[in-house]
Amino acid sequence: MLTGAFEVIWYIAASFLISLFAIPFGLLTKGIDRKLAAHMQWRVGPPVWQPFWDVKKLFQKETIVPEDAISWLYNAAPILCLASTVTILLYIPLGPFPPILEGHGDVILILYLLTIPSLAMVAGGFASSSPFASVGAQREMVLMMSYEFPLAATVIALVWKISSLYPQEAAFSLTAFARHPIWNIMGPFGIVGAIVLLIVLLLVTTGEITKVPFDIAEAETEIAEGVFVEYSGRNLGLFYLADAVKTVVMSALIVAIFFPYNLSPLLTPNISIPSWGWAIVDFLFFLLKLEIVIFFCMTFIRVSVARFRVDQVVKVYWGYLTLASLLALILIALDVML
């Protein structure tokens, strides 16, 4: 049992460790995404470590604050964005390792925390006093409000099923998902419902990490990177890192909810290696799962469609995806009742 002071020190150390893992891995993921997208688009693409060089370059560049900007808010937004994104990762299990802040918060808290990076971007956009950034910030808010409902519906539907089967569990905690993988407890209706929810969550993720077709807040050809239009140097670099970490966060969330499986229970009877060895194997397997999820929710989608307009994005999220998640909710309800 950790005493108070030790606990605090452990949390600080763990946050550093998490950042040390999430930032390089997020950048590597970006590199892999760019390389894969390039090959799908009939070109060669940059080397996979290009994002590291991009960040290095951004941190060396001059950071310019526009004359009319609210400078404290303008400078605070990227830090807030990165910090809040890393914080979410403290609540999500990373493969074989349970969440660092286990027992301190649940999925509902994660849903709330997920809005903070977007809010930081909105604040930064409005603070930079550029008409393009204002349009971008407005669009970011619209986007945020649009994907919130399908996201919540997905989580609630699954939690409902778990809590109906295991009333003694703290159903909203992510470890409950890990202990009872949803594919194992669902009936036939529930499986269909869960597949629909998985697709919904993948599409919500595309919006959450603002990639084509939902990148309306940045939309290079329309509003010249929108919220980021005035940002440069270190500030832009921090936003870039936050975006990389957010990709890891969203995919880790999907993996934690839908694919919490590890390799070790399958292989332990056949191969014998020490338990730390299994931890490494499981962690690598977890990273593989992340890359696969990212491929489907980011790379694959962004190369295969055009960017939507704001009204079309709202229609997709509030119309189709909300309907789909409600339908899945009904299917899972049928599954619970039968």
Binding site: M40, Q41, W42, R43, V212, P213, D215, A219, E220, T221, V303, S304, V305, A306, R307
Partner: peptide, 16 residues
Amino acid sequence: AAHEIGFDTVFHYTWA
């Protein structure tokens, strides 16, 4: 035109 609406795959394909 494809690039303007954010469809970069078509843009690269057409230019190829």
